Computed example of a mutant assay.
Amino acid sequence: MSRTEPRRGRPRDPEADRRIREAAAGLLLERGIDGMTVDAVAERAGVGKATLYRRWSGKDELVLAAAEALFALEVRVPDTGTLLGDLTEVYTDLLRLAGSDEGRAFFRLAATEAGRDPRMGELYRISLAGRLAEVSEIFDRAIGRGELPPDVDRQLMFDWPAGVIVMRILTDMPLPGVDEAAAMAHATVHGFGAR
């Protein structure tokens, strides 16, 4: 008959990982990397520091986990039947996000920290590549309908609206409003789609 070792300590909380990541992501947006502390994350997540350190070795790893969670934004891929309609909806979502306090903080964090820390830069590049892969379906359909040339520069089409948003956030200029999404889509279609 084999003896089993008695379990020591409290059972592992399966929700702790999620709470810690959410707390870290929230504090990262609110305070930036320098202002985010392990103590504050543990307090907000409702866990002890030992629980946190069992999962991440320190603040650097925790920052990367939080950034990874932030960069994992879901992107809606509409199918309105036209490139203009699809891009108008995509830009509406993008401008709505950028216009929120959390979105503004996210874009500022992504731009500043990606340039400061190569690991954050790599996370941001991976995130952007994933977003481009998700919305490539829009470009494929547009090429199939003859709205875009087959050799269109998808990367540039994808980058330019986010570039405008990041530049304006970093320079504290007014962002385009949600009501300007159609005009931005029109500029994209008639700029990139021109033959």
Rank of each mutant, 00 (worst) to 15 (best):
residue 45 A to N: 10
residue 46 G to I: 03
residue 46 G to L: 00
residue 46 G to V: 01
residue 47 V to S: 03
residue 47 V to A: 08
residue 48 G to L: 14
residue 48 G to N: 14
residue 48 G to D: 12
residue 49 K to V: 00
residue 49 K to R: 15
residue 49 K to L: 00
residue 50 A to I: 08
residue 50 A to W: 15
residue 50 A to G: 10
residue 52 L to S: 03
residue 52 L to C: 01
residue 53 Y to Q: 10
residue 53 Y to V: 00
residue 53 Y to W: 10
residue 54 R to T: 08
residue 55 R to E: 09
residue 56 W to Y: 12
residue 57 S to T: 11
residue 58 G to W: 07
residue 58 G to F: 03
residue 58 G to P: 00
residue 58 G to Q: 07
residue 58 G to T: 01
residue 58 G to S: 12
residue 59 K to P: 00
residue 60 D to K: 15
residue 60 D to Y: 09
residue 61 E to K: 10
residue 61 E to F: 02
residue 63 V to K: 01
residue 63 V to D: 06
residue 64 L to W: 01
residue 64 L to R: 11
residue 64 L to H: 08
residue 64 L to Y: 07
residue 64 L to E: 07
residue 65 A to G: 14
residue 66 A to R: 10
residue 66 A to E: 06
residue 67 A to E: 10
residue 67 A to D: 02
residue 67 A to H: 11
residue 68 E to F: 12
residue 68 E to S: 15
residue 70 L to E: 02
residue 72 A to N: 14
residue 72 A to H: 15
residue 72 A to T: 14
residue 72 A to C: 13
residue 73 L to T: 13
residue 74 E to N: 15
residue 74 E to I: 13
residue 76 R to F: 03
residue 76 R to H: 11
residue 76 R to T: 14
residue 77 V to R: 06
residue 77 V to A: 05
residue 78 P to R: 12
residue 79 D to N: 11
residue 79 D to Y: 04
residue 80 T to S: 07
residue 80 T to W: 06
residue 80 T to I: 10
residue 81 G to Q: 00
residue 81 G to S: 07
residue 82 T to P: 05
residue 82 T to D: 12
residue 83 L to K: 02
residue 83 L to I: 08
residue 84 L to Y: 04
residue 85 G to S: 02
residue 86 D to A: 02
residue 87 L to T: 05
residue 88 T to E: 11
residue 89 E to V: 00
residue 90 V to R: 08
residue 90 V to L: 13
residue 90 V to N: 02
residue 90 V to M: 07
residue 91 Y to S: 04
residue 91 Y to E: 10
residue 92 T to E: 12
residue 92 T to H: 06
residue 92 T to L: 01
residue 93 D to L: 05
residue 93 D to W: 03
residue 94 L to S: 02
residue 95 L to H: 08
residue 97 L to C: 06
residue 97 L to T: 14
residue 97 L to I: 11
residue 97 L to S: 04
residue 98 A to V: 03
residue 99 G to P: 01
residue 99 G to C: 04
residue 100 S to T: 14
residue 101 D to R: 13
residue 101 D to C: 03
residue 101 D to N: 14
residue 101 D to T: 09
residue 102 E to S: 13
residue 102 E to W: 11
residue 102 E to M: 11
residue 103 G to P: 02
residue 103 G to S: 09
residue 103 G to E: 00
residue 104 R to T: 06
residue 104 R to E: 01
residue 104 R to C: 01
residue 104 R to I: 00
residue 105 A to Q: 13
residue 105 A to K: 13
residue 106 F to R: 13
residue 106 F to Q: 07
residue 106 F to H: 07
residue 107 F to H: 06
residue 108 R to H: 10
residue 108 R to G: 05
residue 108 R to N: 04
residue 109 L to V: 08
residue 109 L to P: 15
residue 110 A to G: 10
residue 110 A to V: 12
residue 110 A to K: 08
residue 111 A to W: 03
residue 111 A to F: 03
